[in-house]
Design a protein around this nucleic acid. Structure first.
Ligand code: MN
Ligand code: MN
Ligand code: ZN
Ligand code: ZN
Lengths: 136, 136
DNA sequence: AGTTTTTCTGCAAAGGTTGTTATTTAGCAA
DNA sequence: TTGCTAAATAACAACCTTTGCAGAAAAACT
C-alpha cells in the first residue's frame, strides 16, 4: 500500500472523493503487519470516529483491494484478512493463536503444468508460531 | 478416502452407525476427482434418495473430514470443496471455469522459519486450465 | 451559497454452514 | 423376532460474514 498522499491522489484520479473516513482507514492500514479483519479495523476506527460504520470500512477495503493497494487473505474459516503489504510474499498461519506472519519463499514453482497456464501461486504454511512454540 | 467396506468398519469403530445416507455418500465420493461442493453432492444424492437433506450431506462430509478421509479445500470465495484424494498433492484452480486440478509439487519448502514450526504446506496455483486456454 | 454527485449510515438480505429438536432408525440383547 | 436405546435424520431456525439498498449527509464544483 502506498502512502496517504499517494493514495489521496490515486483516489482522486479514480474519481473517488477523499473523506475523513477514508483518510482514517489509510492511516490505520499504513504499515499494519497484523493482517487485520474488517471487524478489527472497525473497532479501532470507532475509537477515533465513533460514527463510522462497518459498511464504510468494508467499502474502503474493497476499493483499496480493487486498486491493488491491499491484498485479501482467506483462511479456511472466519473472516477475511487484509494485507497492505503487496510485495511478493507468502504467509505462515499459527494454528494455535491464529496470528499471520509474512514469509519469503523462493517460489520457483517447478510445475510441469500439462497445458495449465499459471497466473499466480499462493503458499500457505500452517503450524505454530515462535511465541506459541515457546509457551508449550 | 478408503473403500466403502473400510469406511464402514472405521465408522463402526468410531461408534457411528451405517445408514443408507452415509453409504450413498461413500459411493458418490469414491474416486471423485471433481472436488465437489456439498451442494453439488446433495443434488446428485437427491436423484437416488430424494428425501436426503443437505444437513446430512454436510454432516457426513464433516465426519469424513475429521476422520482424515476427506480434505476440505477453501477457495477464496464461494462454498468449500471436498477432496477424497488424501495423498500429498496440491491444486491448480482455473480462474476461467473454476475447475480444480490435482498437481504434484516437489514441496521442499525452503523456509528458513524463524522459530516457526511448520505442520502443513498448501500451495494454490491459479490461472487457466488446458481446456480454457484452448477455447480462447 | 447553491447544485450536483458521491459517500455515509443503518438496516435488510444474501450465501454458506451449523445449531436445534422431534421423529426415525441402526445396532444389539433378550 | 421383538423391543430397547443410543444415534442419525429431516426440517427449520439461526449464525456469520459480506453485500445491497434507501435515504440523509457531506464533498466537490459552479
Ligand atoms: Mn502479509
Ligand atoms: Mn485434489
Ligand atoms: Zn501462535
Ligand atoms: Zn478452465
Amino acid at each position: 500500500m502506498r502512502s496517504q498522499t499517494e493514495l489521496t491522489d490515486a483516489f482522486r484520479d479514480a474519481g473517488l472523493k477523499i473523506t475523513p473516513q477514508r483518510l482514517l482507514m489509510f492511516r490505520l492500514l499504513e504499515g499494519n503487519a497484523s493482517h487485520p479483519t474488517a471487524e478489527a479495523l472497525y473497532e479501532v476506527a470507532r475509537r477515533e470516529m465513533p460514527s463510522i460504520s462497518l459498511r464504510t470500512v468494508y467499502q474502503t477495503l474493497n476499493d483499496l483491494a480493487s486498486m491493488g493497494e491491499l491484498l485479501q487473505i482467506d483462511l479456511g474459516s472466519g473472516p477475511g484478512r487484509f494485507d497492505p503489504n503487496t510485495e511478493d510474499h507468502h504467509h505462515f498461519i499459527c494454528d494455535d493463536c491464529g496470528s499471520i506472519h509474512d514469509v519469503q519463499v523462493d517460489t520457483e514453482a517447478t510445475l510441469q503444468a500439462d497445458g495449465l497456464k499459471v497466473r499466480s501461486v499462493e503458499v500457505v504454511f500452517r503450524g505454530s508460531c515462535a511465541t506459541c512454540v515457546a509457551s508449550k
